[in-house]
Design a protein around this nucleic acid. Structure first.
Lengths: 165, 165
DNA sequence: GGGGTTCTTGCGTCCAGTTCGTATTTGTGT
DNA sequence: ACACAAATACGAACTGGACGCAAGAACCCC
């Protein structure tokens, strides 16, 4: 990683496509009176590049690999700003820090309380619940902001073998 | 409140019933090697007496009305202990502190992201979701530990009237 | 393309919620 | 009543995050 790649490799193509999306977001930022700063460009690049679940701290480390002086509080402020813009959303997967996602990739989460494994669930998985909430409680739910906790298959099995009491 | 009441008033009767339950829990504590301390007795009394959603801090205030020297960290440790015993559970209703409930009164929550209003939802409200999680993801969900966020009717109405963008 | 305005950043500090270490006190079985 | 283990008060530490401020960087306009 980090080595220069020529533009014909798949990941360089992906990078190029991401770079375009990053600039798109920066344009939107400018349109709304904001500015396209280096730290925002790097942060967005990290958000587009990496896996699905980033904490602010993980993103900071990623950004600091490129620009070591970017402060954690800048990451927080930029994430807030991007959230206000609708580019990212944050979610709480159990205890511990929040995770940030691209809004375009949002989904719900099932998180195991014992091993912290997270399963992503598409929005339609919650369709019935959303419908029921609307009818029974006149409530429009957004099932993506907090995880639904439980027990994954492996931990359920383990707890059968070594019961807690 | 706080004034002595004679045993024929309804609340005194309720108090008596609660006192019995408190002692029951303390017995269980003793059986598992724990001790029935005053602070635990008061804490349990508060848990049995009051409304549905207590934060640790609220419980501390309640306990300190009777025994001002009980430290907040004692509340936390006792809540942990009671949770290990299965007497209470805690839940996270959106951002901010956790809330503690008697395990016997557990339910899910729908919380409005805008006004923090919380609606309690019985377990059967989540039955379909639990079923689907089990079938599709082999996952046993416990929908009560984290709230499902969304927008209550009033706030949905308000946001129609003053749109965000 | 230089200058001024405004936005953003780095840094330090502060905050809430919770946990932990420790010396001391308090319940409990015997 | 005693001894021992468990619980307590107190304070300090810790995590995730917010904030105020002065210095720095983008942007717009001419």
């Amino acid at each position: 990683m980090g080595l220069p790649t020529d533009a014909t490799t798949p990941e360089a193509v992906g990078d190029a496509a991401n770079a375009e999306r990053v600039e798109e977001v920066l344009d939107r930022l400018r349109e709304s009176g904001g500015r396209a700063t280096t730290s925002r460009r790097i942060l967005l690049t990290a958000l587009f590049e990496e896996g699905p679940h980033h904490t602010a701290e993980e993103l900071a480390i990623e950004v600091q690999r490129v620009a070591p002086d970017v402060h954690l509080s800048t990451i927080y402020r930029n994430l807030d700003e991007l959230e206000r813009l609708g580019v990212v959303v944050h979610a709480h997967l159990g205890h511990g820090p929040a995770t940030y996602h691209l809004a375009s990739e949002t989904h719900g989460h099932l998180v195991c309380e014992f091993c912290d494994a997270a399963v992503e669930a598409p929005e339609d998985f919650f369709a019935e619940l959303m419908d029921a909430a609307s009818k029974r409680y006149n409530f429009t739910i957004d099932p993506r902001h907090f995880a639904v906790l439980g027990r994954c298959a492996a931990c359920a099995q383990a707890s059968l073998e070594t019961p807690t009491n």
